[in-house]
Design a protein around this nucleic acid. Sequence first.
DNA 1: GGGCACATGTAAGCTGTTACATGATTAA
DNA 2: TTAATCATGTAACAGCTTACATGTGCCC
Lengths: 184, 184
Amino acid sequence: MARRAQTAAAVLGALSVAPMTGYELRRNITEVLGHFWHESFGQLYPCLTELLDESLVRAQPGDRTGSHRYRITAAGRRRLAELLAEPPTRQPPRDGLLLRVFFGRSLSPASVAEILDAEEASVRAALARYADIRAEVTTEDEYAAHRPYWLATLRAGELGAAARLAWIEETRAALDLPATLTPP
Amino acid sequence: MARRAQTAAAVLGALSVAPMTGYELRRNITEVLGHFWHESFGQLYPCLTELLDESLVRAQPGDRTGSHRYRITAAGRRRLAELLAEPPTRQPPRDGLLLRVFFGRSLSPASVAEILDAEEASVRAALARYADIRAEVTTEDEYAAHRPYWLATLRAGELGAAARLAWIEETRAALDLPATLTPP
DNA sequence: GGGCACATGTAAGCTGTTACATGATTAA
DNA sequence: TTAATCATGTAACAGCTTACATGTGCCC
């Protein structure tokens, strides 16, 4: 599945949940899918134009002058199901943190410790975001039918974050680095 | 840290472990760093040329006609340490698996189950590769000084894979999907 | 001699990022 | 009236992927 196709899948998927403008699409992709997905927004409007040409979405006048509210069509729903059923395109890994640890012998222990501290902070920040999302998803009733799926992706984030925290602790021990204070 | 800079870091890092030809660099990046790193090989030779221009690596004649064995210089080691000390560039997330699960309501349960099965297979394959790498790293004595760092990156892969397997099981249960037989 | 692994490179095409341009509406 | 948010786009640039081109050395 080409990268372009996955952009179309994300857009059609969002519109399958609710009709919205390009701007709302952008915001929703950032805020709702943000913890596992990123769209290049320079591609978003061109993608919508393509989907319109193929009659996979329809545009109706929006609330404001010149704004469009996009709505998925029946053909769009069929295409979405096809796209999602294709095997995912994996993006090649490029983990800057592990690159730094792998060549850690070229760094001072203090530098390695700093890198791990920064990672810990970023993982904890992610966990905090997950807690917010969880609160929202569990209280929101409008999209109850989607809830088990949305909770599943959230859970993937939570388990991944927990695994990385465990790894950080283990790695500090293995490399004889000082453990930082765990926030209360 | 720009993407280019991380390519330079990977190349300098590899050469900091042992001098090698461009071809060996390519192979080592694929085989040794492969579980967390990917280089675009169209960029590798241009990158080596740049590093030569900056005197961060030297080329000496290799074993064959026209081949070069690249060796990192003292300036190259200093640059490597600088590059590794910079905060990693995170690549924006684009997890096709989670995209599919998030919009799982647009799929049949059978399709979702298939997607999870495929993911499980791929995670188990990764675990098998990690086992091979672990055997190699622990028996190889030549690079003993690097061992704790290399084992740390390996451990990150192992813990991540375990977390994903746990997530798959949990998700099957949460979505009422059949559990597949676990291989012996 | 043929096939394979070694070895170095390039160029076309595709894709994404970034910054900018434009303007309407609303809240302070 | 000013700033922020809503809303739609585009164009230049940067970067990567893929496939190809070329040739050597070794083993059967």
